[in-house]
Computed example of a mutant assay.
Amino acid sequence: MIKIELERVDGDYGFEAKDANGHTVRLDTSLEGGGTNFGVRPMQMLLMGLGGCSGIDIVSILKKQRQTIEGFSMKIEGEREAGKEPSIWKNVTIVFELTGNIDPDKAKRACELSMDKYCSVAETLRRAGGELKWEVRVNQEIGK
């Protein structure tokens, strides 16, 4: 069982979350919502989790295939449902950008495996009705 502790530490809405290993994350609401910009918005954190989850999968898969990853970054954009409470992620787009001695077909397949099979955050978003789109760029070549 995973255990997380959360404590309010800044203003009305500034929270610090801590996992069992002592890693911390700061969360807050928007300035318009009364926050102080103390930390990440919780829904943004979900997209960050998607990036971390898929990134770990992709690096692991490519390392097993003896691909040399010199650089790896992602750009994630999301659009939430309009006019609803709660407002969940409706559309999410990810651009995976890898550099190094990497076969573009292997990179595309690693991303596909992560997004369609292994990444639990991606599956959570899909089951909530979100549409996930992605593309891969290897040394600036566009895949999917």
Rank of each mutant, 00 (worst) to 15 (best):
G14L: 09
V138M: 04
A20H: 15
A110E: 06
V138C: 05
C111F: 02
G143V: 10
G71Y: 10
V121W: 09
Q65G: 11
L125H: 02
G51K: 06
R137T: 06
L113H: 03
G14T: 11
V95C: 03
D116P: 00
G129C: 09
R26H: 15
L31W: 05
R26D: 13
I2E: 14
E135R: 14
G34D: 08
Q67D: 05
S60V: 04
I102P: 00
M45A: 15
V138R: 01
G14H: 10
T68P: 00
K75T: 12
M1D: 12
S60P: 01
G39S: 01
I69Y: 04
I56T: 13
V95E: 14
G129I: 11
L6Y: 05
K3C: 07
E97R: 11
E77L: 07
S87R: 08
D28S: 08
S73H: 10
I76N: 08
N37G: 11
G71W: 02
D19R: 05
W134C: 03
K63L: 13
L98I: 12
P104F: 03
C111Q: 05
I58L: 14
E97K: 15
I76R: 03
D103Y: 04
R41K: 14
W89K: 00
D103Q: 09
S87N: 10
V138G: 08
R8G: 06
V25K: 06
A128M: 11
L132Y: 07
P104M: 04
R109L: 12
I76S: 10
L46G: 08
D10L: 02
G22V: 01
E32G: 02
T124V: 10
G35Y: 01
I142N: 12
M1I: 09
N91R: 12
E7D: 13
E112C: 07
K84E: 14
S54H: 08
T29E: 05
P42Q: 06
R80F: 01
G51I: 07
M74N: 11
V9G: 00
G55Y: 07
E32Y: 03
P42F: 07
E32A: 15
D10P: 00
G35W: 00
L31D: 06
V121R: 07
M45Q: 04
